[in-house]
Computed example of a mutant assay.
Amino acid sequence: MDIKKFLSESRAVSPVIGVILMVAITVILAAVIGTFVLGLGDQVGDTAPQASFSFDYNGAQEITITHESGDAIAGDELSVVVPSDLTAETVSKKIGTDDNMNAGDTIVVTLATGETLDDGDEVRLVWTSESGSNSATLQTYTH
């Protein structure tokens, strides 16, 4: 057996590299097709906005929520959740002309006549994505 010829022989390298490349391409294609089939790519744009809000309760029937800083949020994607034993009579959004809630804009929630927040009651500001598939509580106020 000629050792020089054995060490310089490189015929088997090309098929091995070819098989490795074919397996790698197959795995990558399977991953890409899998993300589209499972719909994982659709949820990338549905992330909750990052914003800070302040709550001001006047002690009677009115809760004012002010956008302090952060992302602009479409006004129709925001809702206010009051405790289940209370009724939000009106929810008025004082937002900019672009229909987005920007810093400085407010939401005023007026409770039904005679209703007030009790100690421990929570009021939540909830964001729901345009598609309705995702939602998140942006801020919570506890009285």
Rank of each mutant, 00 (worst) to 15 (best):
M1R: 07
I3E: 13
E9W: 00
V13C: 00
V13N: 00
P15W: 02
V16I: 14
I17E: 04
G18S: 12
V19M: 02
I25P: 08
T26P: 13
V27N: 03
L29H: 14
A30R: 08
A30N: 07
A30L: 03
V32G: 12
V32I: 10
V32Q: 12
I33L: 08
I33S: 11
G34L: 13
T35N: 09
T35W: 12
V37D: 12
L38K: 14
L38E: 15
Q43L: 11
G45V: 15
A48G: 11
P49G: 06
P49E: 12
P49A: 12
P49M: 08
A51Q: 04
S52W: 14
F53V: 00
S54N: 08
F55H: 02
D56K: 12
N58G: 09
N58I: 10
G59M: 10
A60H: 13
A60K: 11
E62H: 10
E62S: 10
I63H: 04
T64Y: 11
T66H: 06
G70E: 01
D71A: 05
I73P: 01
A74H: 09
E77A: 15
E77N: 15
E77W: 15
S79D: 05
V80Q: 00
V82Q: 03
V82T: 02
E89Y: 14
T90Q: 03
G96D: 10
G96V: 03
T97N: 12
N100Q: 15
N102D: 11
G104M: 02
D105Y: 07
I107C: 04
I107W: 01
I107M: 04
V108W: 00
V109D: 05
L111K: 00
A112R: 03
A112H: 09
A112F: 08
T113C: 08
G114L: 05
G114D: 01
E115H: 03
T116K: 13
L117I: 10
D118V: 15
G120V: 11
D121A: 07
V123E: 05
R124I: 02
L125N: 02
L125H: 01
V126H: 09
W127N: 02
T128H: 13
S129F: 07
G132A: 04
G132Y: 07
T140R: 08
T140A: 07
H143P: 08
H143W: 14
